[in-house]
Design a protein around this nucleic acid. Structure first.
Lengths: 127, 127
DNA sequence: TATTGCTTACGAAAATAATCGTATCAATGG
DNA sequence: CCATTGATACGATTATTTTCGTAAGCAATA
């Protein structure tokens, strides 16, 4: 049983996961290139981070070739849920409704987006 | 200009802020009593944390009396926004709509809560 | 007054996270 | 064949966060 599930990625680890979620797979260098557009840390830092994440089970890798290829091993959705849950508890007194209202009220949403939310809301109300 | 605004509280600091937001004000001992119901760290740990938070400007205190009284110096709302923003960027590709949908879809909401959300949604749609 | 109990202050250790330097290996081109 | 380039491994350093131990003040009271 892969017990890697409730390991909470650190901030830097999330940055890396974003790249992997986005691209599907990537070499250390590719990850590093992307990160370095908005952050400056050396190549070996990224490498080390990926190695640590590998040990934690946050990423998989194909090391059958010289230049390893990395993949996310935790889904974006699960990670989102994990952090949402944490946030709801720590900052919204456990009320996901409060969080929703906050997000709705304090951010811009286009007409289309509002409609999309309305759809979901309708579905929920039916039950 | 109090520049204390974009200091991001750490995890432990948030736990403390929750108590202060909830109670309005509290002594170190009161904070500690509450925290110790779900966490075990010594009294001086809580004290030190509050002192650090004071230096950072996260809390105010009345130290005109022997047993100091602490108050939050950052609002819950602003802190919520701050963390929401961070989360939207790091985990929802900048889309607050996605976050809203996630929270709506993956958590329980009572009929009344759904209605409350509907109200807000109606308001937003008007504009 | 001396003791006890509760307080703050504060340095420093322990734990966690992030960064880097260096060794080493493999492929490639001259 | 050897120098160069680019890759991994990994120990060690640095930074940040959390925790605690100890000293010292003050007030109630035995």
């Amino acid at each position: 049983m892969a017990t890697s599930k409730n390991i909470k990625p650190t901030e830097s680890e999330i940055e890396i996961l974003r790249v992997l979620w986005d691209k599907g797979k990537a070499t250390v260098r590719e990850v590093h290139e992307i990160l370095s557009t908005h952050k400056d840390a050396g190549y070996t830092t990224t490498l080390k981070l990926l190695q640590i994440m590998f040990e934690k089970g946050l990423v998989k890798r194909d090391d059958s070739i010289k230049t390893h290829i990395y993949f996310a091993n935790v889904s974006k959705e699960i990670t989102q849920k994990q952090f949402m849950g944490k946030m709801i508890n720590s900052l919204f007194s456990g009320s996901s409704t409060q969080l929703v209202m906050q997000a709705l009220g304090n951010h811009q949403h286009s007409k289309e987006e509002l409609e999309e939310i309305q759809q979901l809301l309708n579905n929920l109300k039916k039950k």
